[in-house]
């Protein structure tokens, strides 16, 4: 910036404008990612699901926990299914964050099931020597949901093939 004689044209003006645009774009994208990253889904009465995509850092875990706990209170949920299929690497830090979520949810009376563990992840966790004895895990969301139903005393039954004609027949009168 020039200090005297009014506004002299700034030599790098266009560059500054360009980098300002970039900053704006990055900020917008950051916002979008932030909105995308922690959806808490109610999959059934008293069951929530939380698909995690991407890595978990401290800030993200915090936001996720806040959103999740509030949802537990709002919906009166008793089971939370945490799907880590989309988490590329589960290292000590990520595992620690997951355990925080488990502990915080438990304090609100909700049990957390972690699903989507791959063989690699399981072995990594074992090699890291982390204590996961208090956590229930399954390989897929389907198995997790099945377990959640069992915990809540629900049962999924295939409807019989026989068509129920009487009940649904429209009235012709």
């Amino acid at each position: 910036m020039s200090e005297s004689g009014g506004r002299a044209p700034i030599p790098g003006g266009t560059q500054i404008a360009a980098s300002q645009r970039q900053v704006n774009t990055i900020e917008q994208q950051r916002q979008t990612i932030q909105e995308l990253q922690t959806p808490v889904i109610q999959v059934w009465d008293r069951i929530l699901a939380l698909p995690i995509v991407g890595s978990l850092d401290t800030a993200r875990t915090q936001e996720m926990n806040e959103a999740l706990l509030q949802k537990i209170v709002d919906t009166g949920s008793e089971i939370v299914i945490l799907d880590i299929t989309g988490v590329p690497v589960v290292d000590t830090a990520v595992a620690k964050h997951l355990l925080e979520t488990v502990a915080a949810s438990r304090l609100l009376g909700a049990e957390v099931l972690i699903v989507g563990l791959s063989t690699n992840t399981a072995l990594t966790l074992v090699h890291l020597g982390l204590d996961l004895s208090g956590v229930t895990t399954r390989t897929t969301m389907a198995k997790g949901l099945e377990l959640a139903f069992a915990r809540l005393g629900l049962e999924v039954i295939r409807r019989s093939r026989r068509r129920v004609t009487v009940a649904h027949e429209p009235d012709d009168n």
Binding site: Q62, N65, E66, L69, Q70, I72, V73, G76, E78, E100, A103, A104, S105, R106, L107, L108, G109, A110, G134
Partner: peptide
């Protein structure tokens, strides 16, 4: 929720206590 987060951050997971909503 805020209390739960604080407790976990303090490392107090109340392992010996049963909880409900």
């Amino acid at each position: 929720p805020a209390v739960a987060i604080t407790l976990v951050e303090l490392g107090l997971e109340l392992q010996g206590v049963r909880t409900a909503l």
